[in-house]
Amino acid sequence: MAMSMANTIDIASLSRQVKGEIETKFPEAHIDFCLTCGLCASGCPATGLEGLDPRKFLRLLALGQDEELRSTKWIYSCTNCMRCAYVCPMNIDVGRLVMLVRGMRSKEERPTNLQKSCDLQKASNSTGIPNSDFVWVVGDVLEEVREEEPEWADLQAPMDKQGAMFYLNQNAKEPTVEPEEMVPLWKILHKVGIDWTYSSEWWDGANYCLFPGDPEDWEYTVRKQAETVDALGCPTYINTE
């Protein structure tokens, strides 16, 4: 096989900065442990996209191909599904490394909507509707059901009920675009007869801040949720998805 000099990786001029940064932030990254066995790439649907796969991604790190790492779109085709980490014989969590590389981009360099979802959620919820709208939509839909379906006349959708046994989060998609999709769950909870509540703040369960790559944003939104639930005094937090 003829080797082209054009793409030659000159070991003498490697920076391996990206790798170094990852290893500082995540000492258990274990990039060097890679056996290049291909188990990850064999099971990854993102293999081949943008000419990369989990194994090649690790190799870019190991061989200090920083420019490519900083520019490749592949890091947004990897869905962090961790199917690679699930089997990697060396326990390398490629998904997490991808997140760290995502985080090395400035906010402007990131996919707009991805960053926006997180920014909105940091403010309140990922679709950006005012909290008051959420409260209103819940009340409105509830009223409608009670009126139109007599057998559900005493259906509940409690809001900010202090000391409820269960706290329920809500993906923002429903109150925003398909509010009727909230009803089935209410009915189930009603049937079972549990004591539950929504919160009028930090109610969105989407958690998009996990994805753009800034752990502090992710931490912020989770912390807000935790504070909210504890403030309501609910012993159990039900995640609805």
Binding site: M3, T8, I9, I11, A12, K56, L63, Q65
Partner: peptide, 15 residues
């Protein structure tokens, strides 16, 4: 020393 990396299939140069 020149060798082709088996994963990236690119030539690597060492001194």
């Amino acid at each position: 020393v020149l060798v082709q990396d088996h994963v990236l299939l690119r030539q690597v140069k060492f001194n």
